[in-house]
Amino acid sequence: MAYLYVVESADMVFLKNQTELTWGNLSSHISKLEEAGYVNVEKRFKGKKPQTLLHLSEKGRNAFTEYRKKLTQVLGKISQRKI
């Protein structure tokens, strides 16, 4: 989701190379995110080759922003306790 957050859209090949996940692993992640409504999956053909294009939905973008905010708060509390 972090990769899709910083780009407008990307295909499966690009995400696989960036995340270094296996095809199966990446597919199952994407399926779950699609079911949750966080990722929009668009299947199309480029010439004769199929291409799966992915981009974060508005819901997914908001959820990720919220998740990051909470994570930052938690990490902030942890570092304060250490001090």
Binding site: V7, V13, F14, N17
Partner: peptide
């Protein structure tokens, strides 16, 4: 492109 895949950059990129 067939090896790297396709990406449409976000606003910062």
């Amino acid at each position: 492109r067939p090896r790297m895949g396709f990406v449409k950059p976000g606003p910062k990129l």
